[in-house]
């Protein structure tokens, strides 16, 4: 059929082209951040970038892979721990911080074949058990000194300003790479299968989608991403206490950011991270009530706005800044009257 049914499949819309251009400009602007932001803002922005990483990773896992995990703190903690171990083994500090997430990603491959056989809630809580076990085992390492913890001492060799700028650039680079990875994953052939699996695993398998391989890819990506977030957090804090890094709170943050921003939307987690960052900046000092509020928000959003703020906006106005999906454009067939 030469004319087709009058439908054009589009990946790019004028809006998304504009958004991508703005994003490019923003990234360039951000890249020069340390030169004009000042120490405080540079540190804060580094934190925001880490939050974006965490939210994007949890969203990839739950929103696209249908894998709700409450154990992502395992990778967060392991990322930091691996960096300490690598640095201790004589690796240059920043090289250790870069290699650590990849090492954790390697560990997550055998784990995935195991964990992905758990369904739904069993996966969620099974990952939590894994995080607990990882925490306990890391505590056994003499280098860590139990809950006392240790530090990435090699970082103290850098001047504070240099370290701040390096942390910032590293966070920006890691965030860009990981978010771009999710973007490319969603636009690739795998992206279509990811959506198919999320919608209906059995049906997807029956039409030839390699369910396990696709889920495994997402699982490992999320592991690498969360480990990178852990390693970056270590870079900013220098000290490593297992209790802090393996705390389920990190996953609570990820869930909050993703749910509020928009589970299963590409842009949502970024929005969620910005919102979380703002809330933390203003209310983080109020301690426990702040955490009560986060829990309450997660509960309320899951009940009343399960697609989050971005999802609601998208449903309402049909906007998509990032061209991760396909758009069907109906165009009238020229020259022929519809019969």
């Amino acid at each position: 059929m030469s004319g087709g049914p009058g439908i054009v499949v589009q990946r790019w819309s004028p809006l998304s082209i504009g958004a991508m251009s703005c994003l490019g400009a923003l990234l360039v602007l951000l890249a020069f951040g340390p030169f004009y932001l000042g120490p405080y803002l540079t540190d804060r922005l580094t934190t925001l970038l880490i939050y974006v990483i965490m939210a994007a990773m949890w969203n990839a896992l739950a929103g696209y892979g249908g894998l709700v995990s409450v154990g992502q703190q395992a990778f967060f903690g392991l990322g930091a721990y691996a960096a300490i171990r690598l640095s201790h083994a004589g690796l240059e500090a920043y090289l250790a911080l870069i290699l650590a997430p990849l090492l954790v990603g390697l560990v997550s491959v055998p784990l995935s074949t195991f964990a992905l056989r758990l369904q739904g809630g069993e996966f969620a809580i099974g990952m939590w058990v894994f995080a607990e076990l990882a925490h306990l085992l890391v505590n056994l390492d003499g280098l860590v000194q139990g809950e006392t913890g240790t530090s990435l001492i090699a970082l103290s060799a850098f001047a504070p300003d240099t370290r701040r700028a390096l942390n910032y650039w590293l966070a920006l680079a890691v965030m860009t790479v990981l978010v771009a990875a999710v973007f490319l994953l969603l636009r690739s052939r795998v992206g279509a299968s990811i959506q198919a699996i999320r919608d209906n695993q059995e049906a997807a398998a029956s039409v030839g989608v390699r369910v396990m391989a696709t889920k495994c890819l997402i699982f490992v990506l999320a592991a690498v991403g969360c480990a990178a977030a852990g390693a970056l957090t270590l870079a900013t804090l220098i000290s490593f206490q297992p209790k802090t890094y393996f705390s389920v709170q990190w996953t609570a943050y990820m869930i909050f950011m993703t749910l509020v921003g928009g589970l299963g939307t590409f842009e949502g987690p970024v929005l969620g991270a910005v919102i979380f960052f703002a809330i933390e900046t203003f209310f983080g000092g109020s301690g426990v009530w702040y955490l009560v509020g986060l829990g309450a928000c997660a509960l309320l959003f899951s009940l009343f706005l399960p697609r989050g703020i971005w999802g609601a906006l998208r449903d309402r106005f049909g906007i998509a800044l990032m061209p991760v999906g396909y758009r069907l454009q109906f165009r009238p067939r020229a020259g022929k009257a519809a019969t």
């Binding site: 709700v68 426990v288 829990g295 997660a298």
Partner: peptide, 26 residues
């Protein structure tokens, strides 16, 4: 929460857990 998918109750109950724990602390 079950109405918006089989996984949503995990999110709701996790939020509830975070809320309860911290309210108890408070």
């Amino acid at each position: 929460s079950l109405r918006s998918g089989a996984l949503t109750p995990l999110l709701s109950t996790f939020g509830l857990a975070v809320m309860l724990d911290n309210l108890l602390f408070e």
